[in-house]
């Protein structure tokens, strides 16, 4: 399986996302922001960083990169897409996910090992977890405070589209402690903490992050075997 990792100018965790994909057993394919060709990848990761310097608004410029046009189309067609941190911001700006990520409530960048409780496990990127499972993954952001209007939040919760919430402390003030969400089809997931930094015992606080990458491989294998992507495509 081939997982594409996009590099925008200012992407920082692209190498880490590629490494995580490799450790999970996939082939990592680097995608360039200016090249609309997705090179036949089976899934895409939009990595963390400060694309275009986070100028204007986080993710606001990256959303218009040539590669994003192809990704937006492909995502609507069911391609699994994971946006991590800045990638989550890009997905919100691209309207593939609802809500927005705003300045942390305490106004500081914050990097810590963060406990999350996984909720929705019927997505392409979380099917390897069990509902209610607590996982430890680094969080690091300055603008990770998830906000949406109450109706949207209610809808996300009613439809089971919150994939993980912060537990044992909310690091940035996100509404309803939301750390990550999915689209209706379950193929597009955005998460603020960094699973790609929790894939090796030597460098991470746990191996819990690997579950996101093995999940998508499982979903792809299932789809290849004639099934549907986890989460289904309604």
């Amino acid at each position: 399986m081939r997982i594409g990792v996009v590099t925008f100018p200012g992407s920082l965790d692209d190498g880490d996302a590629a490494r995580a994909a490799r450790i999970a057993g996939a082939e990592a394919v680097r995608l360039w922001h200016g090249d609309p060709d997705l090179h036949g990848v089976d899934a895409v990761v939009l990595p963390g960083g400060f694309s275009y310097g986070d100028y204007l608004r986080c993710g606001a410029i990256a959303r218009f990169a040539p590669v994003m046009e192809s990704i937006i189309d492909a995502a609507r067609g069911g391609l699994p897409v994971l946006g991590i941190c800045n990638g989550f911001q890009v997905l919100c700006e691209a309207h593939l996910l609802p809500g927005a990520l705003t300045r942390n409530q305490h106004l500081h960048f914050r990097n810590r090992d963060q406990w999350l409780k996984v909720e929705a496990t019927n997505t392409a990127w979380t099917n390897g977890f069990t509902p209610g499972q607590e996982i430890l993954i680094p969080v690091k952001n300055g603008e990770g405070c998830f906000v949406a209007d109450p109706a949207t939040l209610d809808k996300l919760e009613a439809e089971g589209r919150v994939i993980a919430r912060y537990v044992r402390g909310n690091p940035n003030g996100s509404q309803r402690d939301i750390a990550g969400i999915t689209n209706e089809a379950g193929n597009v997931v955005g998460i603020m903490p960094h699973p790609e930094h929790a894939v090796e015992a030597l460098t991470g606080p746990s191996l819990d992050g690997l579950g996101f990458f093995t999940s998508v491989l499982r979903a792809l294998a299932g789809a290849a075997a004639g099934g549907q992507l986890a989460g289904g495509q309604q």
């Binding site: 309207h95 609802p98 809500g99 927005a100 942390n104 409530q105 305490h106 405070c145 906000v147 949406a148 209007d149 109450p150 109706a151 949207t152 402390g169 909310n170 690091p171 940035n172 003030g173 996100s174 509404q175 309803r176 402690d177």
Partner: peptide, 17 residues
């Protein structure tokens, strides 16, 4: 060092493209 969760009531829903 913990922060409280914010509640924003005034944000308009984002127009869908």
């Amino acid at each position: 060092g913990e922060v409280r969760s914010v509640t924003l009531e005034l944000i308009e829903p984002k127009p869908q493209p």
